Simulated assay, not measured.
Amino acid sequence: MSPVIALESLSKGYDIAGGSRLTAVDDVSLQIAAGETYALVGESGCGKSTLARMAAMLVTPDEGQVSWSGQPVSRERRSAVRAQRDHTQFVFQDPAAALSPRLTVEEAVSEPLRIRRRAGARSVADLLDDVGLDRSMGRRYPRELSGGQRQRVVIARALALEPKLLVLDEPVASLDVSVQAQVLNLLADLQAAHGLAYLLIAHDLAVVSSVADRIGVMYLGRIVEEGTAAEVVTRPRHPYTQMLIASVPAFAPGERVDGPRVVGDPASPTERHAGCAFASRCTVATQTCHEVVPPRRDLGGVAVRCHHAS
Rank of each mutant, 00 (worst) to 15 (best):
86 D>A: 14
80 A>I: 06
109 V>M: 00
99 L>K: 02
70 G>D: 05
157 R>V: 07
89 Q>F: 10
120 G>Q: 09
160 A>G: 04
178 S>M: 09
175 L>C: 12
68 W>M: 09
182 Q>R: 12
138 G>N: 08
178 S>E: 09
182 Q>D: 12
146 S>M: 04
171 P>T: 02
96 A>E: 10
64 G>E: 02
149 Q>V: 10
141 Y>A: 06
136 S>R: 13
161 L>Y: 07
103 L>T: 00
87 H>D: 14
122 R>E: 15
80 A>F: 01
132 G>S: 10
125 A>V: 13
145 L>V: 08
108 A>V: 06
142 P>H: 12
114 R>M: 08
66 V>M: 11
105 V>L: 07
117 R>P: 00
182 Q>K: 08
116 R>G: 00
149 Q>G: 05
68 W>F: 12
151 Q>N: 05
149 Q>P: 10
111 E>G: 02
116 R>Y: 14
73 V>P: 02
120 G>P: 08
173 A>T: 11
175 L>D: 06
150 R>A: 03
128 L>H: 07
71 Q>I: 11
100 S>Y: 01
86 D>W: 14
123 S>V: 03
161 L>G: 05
148 G>H: 05
169 D>A: 04
166 L>S: 02
118 R>S: 10
99 L>A: 06
106 E>T: 12
167 V>C: 10
65 Q>K: 15
94 D>N: 15
105 V>A: 03
176 D>T: 13
174 S>K: 08
94 D>M: 04
81 V>L: 14
114 R>Q: 13
133 L>Q: 01
79 S>W: 03
85 R>Y: 07
135 R>S: 14
87 H>V: 00
179 V>H: 09
159 L>W: 05
100 S>L: 00
149 Q>H: 07
91 V>F: 13
88 T>R: 00
166 L>V: 01
157 R>T: 10
66 V>Y: 10
161 L>C: 13
158 A>M: 04
176 D>C: 09
126 D>C: 05
97 A>K: 12
147 G>D: 02
168 L>G: 08
153 V>F: 05
153 V>W: 06
137 M>Y: 15
121 A>V: 04
